[in-house]
Design a binder for these strands. Sequence first.
DNA 1: CCGACTTGTGCAAACGCTTCCAGTCGGAAC
DNA 2: GTTCCGACTGGAAGCGTTTGCACAAGTCGG
Lengths: 345, 345
Amino acid sequence: MAGRDSAATHASIVDVAARAGVSVATVSRALRDYPHVADATRARVHDAARDLHYVADANASRLASGRSNTIGLLAPILTSWYTSEVIAGVEEMLQDAELDLLISTRPGSPDARRVFGPDGAFRQRVDGMLLVDMFVGEAGATELAKVAAPAVVLGESLQTLTSLSIDNRLGAELATRHLLELGHRRIGLIGGVITPASQSSVPDDRTAGYLAALAGQRVRRERSLQVDGLFTIEGGRRASRQMLLGPNPPSAIFCMSDEMAFGVMQTARELGLSVPGDLSLIGFDDHPASEAFGLSTIQQPVREMGRMGARLMIDILAGHGTSCAHHPLGIALVSRASTAAVSST
Amino acid sequence: MAGRDSAATHASIVDVAARAGVSVATVSRALRDYPHVADATRARVHDAARDLHYVADANASRLASGRSNTIGLLAPILTSWYTSEVIAGVEEMLQDAELDLLISTRPGSPDARRVFGPDGAFRQRVDGMLLVDMFVGEAGATELAKVAAPAVVLGESLQTLTSLSIDNRLGAELATRHLLELGHRRIGLIGGVITPASQSSVPDDRTAGYLAALAGQRVRRERSLQVDGLFTIEGGRRASRQMLLGPNPPSAIFCMSDEMAFGVMQTARELGLSVPGDLSLIGFDDHPASEAFGLSTIQQPVREMGRMGARLMIDILAGHGTSCAHHPLGIALVSRASTAAVSST
DNA sequence: CCGACTTGTGCAAACGCTTCCAGTCGGAAC
DNA sequence: GTTCCGACTGGAAGCGTTTGCACAAGTCGG
């Protein structure tokens, strides 16, 4: 009914200025609630803008101000439940802050030069960037810190940059200890490399936690009980087959992700093993499907992580907010049907 | 090592022009491989640009050209496996086309005015938009067609706009017929409304397919066997409890999504029913976890849908490509462990 | 050998804002 | 009654591109 908002050209700031009877400079100031604008004028301008359905052209204002009001998000993959959950959290916060989100995937290395270099999708396009699971490392962080746009790193603990992560070592320890407390002594570990090109610290940290828990109970580690599951369902399936069909199968398995644990469940079904009767199983993440399948796991606040990352970014851009500190997030053991006391057989 | 690419201001087009000994106009043309530029000049400009690590400022070029080189994607939720898979496909295509992706969620109605109106995140920001599962309907499509930016609609079959979807009716028919062929006669349907505010045609279409299959075998529909599962795991769990604890439980259930089927599996476990022994189960989607849990399902090419949607958008923007046509995508029945012949009890 | 094109290039005007600088005006301080 | 100051406002210079138009130098059929 409103008509007008067809393909016709949109109202510009001069139209608003004309209608309000002021200069464009004043319109610009009034609309952004700058000081030194009389209340009456401000009101008049706002009215005019509303009447004209005026919205400042983002590109023009970016060009003029040098600020893009966009924050970039870089992740190795978009498809994982984890990543999309993070993005959802980020998006949630950004919506309120009137910031745009520019998403990009870089399966390869997180080399700062690649990202900000001549062909980098992000260079000159964003005011700040969120790196999700890119595993930049302290060296990469130093490199990134030099770049103009501030960065917030999720999933990793860094000194040089603002970062945000859970305590992976602790999580793994919790999971493993849970199995130990149930009496298990032969405990398999399915982990792996998250993305081929990046050397993530996550698997290392979780392995460390696993080993620490074992050590705490004076259980010897066994090489054959540590297999790479690639962080995929299929990888988990393969790894567990290898383990369970081997000479000395474990009575319990800790997977570094719930998805790998799903693969283990598949293996169990295929081999006719009952979970937790013949095999106790615990994952890591608390994937939405985990509850349905009764998978015990370590719960981490993924969405919250996205929200918090965005929040930190917003604060940095606003001037307040430390530009480098690590923010830990809590985790919790969720015990469900897939873990039980070791059978006495 | 390259130095220079620190916080220092970036090279601009005039720097390149100076270095190459030509005018900025020529640089602009040369860099974008426009005609009417001598090969030698073009080479010289490219060299200069490379030496200076020059990248055209996106905002300036957008402002000047009026083209944003950005396409917007709107979806009711980002978190679902389905949506992220689509996005991954889109992103994949866009990367090559040098287009940016601007993502936004609008849980509410897909009202064109909301999206493109004064407060619409997308207005004036994108060259085109992809609507994923927004269920605009023919009326909304007409509205959208009036707007400047072209739109491609995924997950729905439209006349007025370019659209892309599978044959939902057929898929549901395939699934139901599969159960019928296994001898089942009491077949439950768990479906629902995808998002509260939008009246999607998907559930309706799938319901129609289900009913058609039943009718094909002269099986009477039963109201108590059709329950809303909200398209969530928990919803599927609740719906199936209601059905299975009812007076006359089904011997098989068709869920309109794999995730709801996961919820049914949970119910089965809770009630001590075996799948497929006591209950056959088939879903819809082919969720990545479905294989692991042996869930029979209707497979749809989600990622391909994203790719194709992006492709269509690119074509439209490039000038060739029909601006309104429906593109169907194929589906397939995947029979796994969760469906079996009806037990003779 | 001459207009009519074609090709290659430069000039300069947008594009729609933001923001520095300067100016007006009323009132407080002297 | 000056002078000074602060609150408002306007003028205009960018911001870094793109692109219409003009122009110089060939190219070519007639």
